[in-house]
């Protein structure tokens, strides 16, 4: 069924460009401009990869984008990767694994709790709904820094500092208002006739939610999953505060390569930054397919 959908879409796509006439040159022009802008987008990453492959002393003294050694010859220097991976007897792989565990739990939590809350906000009538929605929007507006200390005190009193629970539990109770609001907007874009038809067929709320709305909202769900992945991965502050050496994540480990009061390992920082970005990039590469999948709303029944 999904495959059919895709075939139909690609057929439509080629049809669309053919109809404009001179399809070849138009799309060549498009490709050209997309690549030109793409270079600007990707330049910093290229620089970082190049820096990670240079000897430490050449990173800032040589402007070349090619990794060169001290004599100006092209050479791939993997020292930064080796030393960065085994930083101070530790193991960067362990920190990556810790990041993955936290991120996986955060995604599960957000997908369950935020979609449910969004359904409640967008499709159900209940007393206090508008006030609750306003309160949820308010939680987005207060700068988070002033919440850190009260929240930390709370988790500390519960004896949970040093575990991943202070980071993961909030995701299971829909604290990320961003995703609730986003999902609400997507649900509101889906014609109500679909729910009503399901209700007439005798489907309950849960069934309507899981069988009608969620499948249609696949792109939004994919967005939630991707963003949760990236933002939890990069969520430096709570990882810094709540985790200890054993449960430390890759993002926190990265910040320890650079210290203005002593010496810094720039090569290792860039090498491990590249290592850290690769899984995130792969997740996006795979995940974004779902952004454009799903059952297109027909609008017509």
């Amino acid at each position: 069924m999904e495959r059919d959908q895709r075939r139909v879409e690609s057929a439509r796509g080629s049809q669309g460009s053919a109809r404009k006439g001179g399809g070849m040159s138009v799309s060549a022009l498009k490709h050209f401009s997309l690549i030109a802008v793409g270079v600007v987008m990707i330049y910093p990453l290229l620089w970082m990869v190049s820096a990670s492959l240079k000897p430490e002393t050449m990173i800032f003294s040589s402007p070349s984008l090619l990794p060169l050694d001290e004599d100006g010859n092209f050479a791939l220097n993997l020292d930064s990767y080796v030393e960065g991976w085994t930083m101070q007897g530790g193991d960067f792989g362990k920190y990556l694994l810790n990041s993955f565990i936290i991120v996986a739990l955060c995604i599960i939590g957000n997908l369950m709790s935020c979609t449910m809350a969004a359904y409640g906000f967008s499709r159900l009538m209940w007393r206090g709904r508008n006030i609750s929605f306003a309160i949820m929007m308010m939680t987005l507006m207060l700068p988070g820094f002033v919440l850190i200390v009260p929240q930390y005190i709370m988790w500390s009193q519960l004896g949970l500092v040093g575990t991943i629970l202070p980071i993961v539990v909030p995701k299971f109770v829909a604290v990320d208002a961003f995703f609730v609001f986003m999902m609400v907007q997507f649900f509101r874009g889906i014609p109500r006739e679909l729910d009503e038809a399901a209700a007439i067929d005798g489907a309950g709320y849960w069934r309507t939610f899981t069988r009608i709305l969620l499948p249609i909202a696949t792109p939004a769900i994919a967005t939630t999953a991707i963003f949760t992945f990236i933002w939890s991965w990069n969520d430096f502050f709570s990882q810094l505060l709540y985790l200890n050496r054993d449960s430390m994540t890759a993002t926190v480990a990265l910040s320890n390569f650079v210290d203005a009061t002593g010496s810094s390992q720039w090569g290792q920082l860039f090498a491990m930054s590249v290592v850290t970005i690769v899984p995130v990039f792969l997740v996006f590469l795979v995940g974004q397919r779902f952004l454009i999948q799903g059952i297109a709303t027909t609008g017509l029944k």
């Binding site: 930390y152 500390s156 810094l240 050496r245 320890n256 210290d259 009061t261």
Partner: peptide
């Protein structure tokens, strides 16, 4: 002895927060 370290700025942010929680 259980060790914790971070760079200078992050160290103080964490220490101040811990101080607030008597931690």
């Amino acid at each position: 002895i259980s060790a914790e370290y971070s760079n200078y700025d992050d160290f103080w942010t964490k220490l101040n927060t811990q101080a607030a929680a008597n931690d």
